[in-house]
């Protein structure tokens, strides 16, 4: 059973602001999704191999070879606020 409190907690962890009516409709949505999961849980999967990934691939590697990085200028062009070549963000610690 999903409550509005759960939804607000998850929204907070994800730093998403929800209006009151949004929280209510999302609670119903999530409840629906979880009901569906309950259905899946009832399936017999004894013969299905456990998987951690949807693609039938493994061991995709990269050699340890240096590639050119972006310039500081290019990176700073993406910054909303900047200072001395660094991203400027609200103060995190006093």
């Amino acid at each position: 059973m999903i409550t509005k409190k759960d939804v607000q907690y998850i929204a907070h962890l994800s730093r998403i602001h929800l209006a009151e009516n949004e929280a209510e409709s999302l609670t119903k949505n999530l409840e629906g999704i979880l009901t569906y999961i309950e259905k899946l849980k009832k399936l017999d999967v004894a013969d299905v191999k456990p998987t951690s990934h949807v693609l039938p691939l493994e061991n995709v590697f990269r050699e340890d070879v240096v590639r050119e990085s972006l310039s500081q200028n290019d990176v700073m062009n993406m910054a909303v606020e900047k200072n001395k070549g660094s991203f400027k963000v609200p103060q995190v610690i006093e």
Partner: peptide, 27 residues
């Protein structure tokens, strides 16, 4: 102390100028 980062080809070097060792992957 590998030559590059764990998931991209940016050099794994200490003490460079800020934000000069990044790419779309590690950003």
């Amino acid at each position: 102390n590998t030559k590059t980062k764990i998931f991209c080809g940016c050099a794994n070097t200490f003490g460079q100028n800020a934000n000069t060792l990044t790419c779309p992957i590690c950003l």
